[in-house]
């Protein structure tokens, strides 16, 4: 029995690591092949197989060319503006909404929550037909501000993160503040808002990555691709004339990945926990 047990354990460990390595390989392969190709000169790209290593890992010409060609300086500036505004306003709106929904009982509280749940079920692409008409009437096509306002719209997952966090903050804090004569606004900004910090960080990271990666609405509403391109839509530059210059395209793709990659490396824990909280609650 002991021998069998041991064999079983060895086999289990083997299968365990084999599958982990295999699927990690699958997950990484497409991106790694892009990184490899991004470092190749034109000549190298045309003569060697895609999976052979580049001659030099210090050949950055493709990155510089891609950066210039796609107008990425502009795109990064736009993305930064959008990101800062969207995060600021969605944190403001989201935390206040969660405060009201969690701390006050009023007619319609459950209805609002139910509507949010309902809204998560609607596929975004289908909604954009109606939203487009609204945006068009408001004159928000080709306007950074219009796009920002649309993206600020309540983000249900972060509201759930806030609500869950509020549930763990004791009511006695509010009560003692009320006894001391604080208004609801003071309670919210002086007491509860600072306590919410971990939840705000988590939801900002999730919302930030989401906003940074958003391309469907960006390409729909920010149609002027030179003036209003975001990082994601600036990649569209490579669609037409450079159809098969993949060393250049890959360099562009890698540049656009870098910010998300950095955030991921630095804030893995928050991303994982934020995802789990949002999904379990939603």
């Amino acid at each position: 029995m002991d021998v069998l047990d041991k064999i079983g354990k060895v086999v289990f460990t083997f299968v365990k690591y084999l599958s982990l390595v295999f699927f990690s390989f699958c997950a990484v392969l497409p991106v790694v092949s892009c990184v490899i190709t991004a470092f190749k000169t034109d000549e190298e790209y045309h003569t060697t197989n895609v999976m052979t290593m580049p001659k030099s890992w210090l050949y950055f010409d493709n990155f510089i060319r891609a950066f210039k060609q796609a107008g990425m300086a502009r795109a990064f500036a736009n993305s930064l503006i959008i990101l800062v505004c969207v995060l600021f306003f969605s944190v403001m709106i989201g935390t206040q909404l969660a405060y009201v929904l969690n701390r006050f009982k009023f007619f319609g509280n459950t209805i609002i929550r139910a509507l949010f749940l309902f809204a998560t079920q609607l596929p975004g692409v289908a909604m954009q037909i109606a939203v487009y008409e609204i945006m068009y009437k408001l004159g928000f096509i080709n306007s950074l501000m219009g796009y920002i306002i649309m993206m600020c719209g309540t983000d249900i997952i972060s509201i759930y993160i806030y609500i869950q966090f509020f549930e763990n903050i004791s009511y006695s804090l509010d009560e003692s503040a009320i006894i001391d004569g604080a208004s609801y606004f003071t309670i919210f900004y002086k007491i509860l808002f600072p306590l919410l910090k971990p939840a705000i960080v988590t939801s900002c990271i999730l919302k930030g990555v989401g906003t940074y990666n958003e391309y469907y609405c960006a390409s729909l509403y920010l149609q002027d691709k030179t003036k209003y391109a975001t990082v994601a839509t600036s990649l569209y530059t490579f669609v037409g004339p450079l159809g098969s210059e993949y060393n250049l395209i890959c360099a562009g793709v890698i540049i656009s990945l870098l910010p998300a990659f950095l955030v991921f490396v630095l804030c893995q824990k928050q991303i994982y926990s934020g995802l789990t909280v949002g999904a379990v609650k939603g």
């Binding site: 997950a27 991106v31 940074y212 958003e214 839509t233």
Partner: peptide, 8 residues
């Protein structure tokens, strides 16, 4: 990580 890559 693939989850964090933008669609385009």
């Amino acid at each position: 990580f693939p989850f964090l890559i933008n669609g385009i």
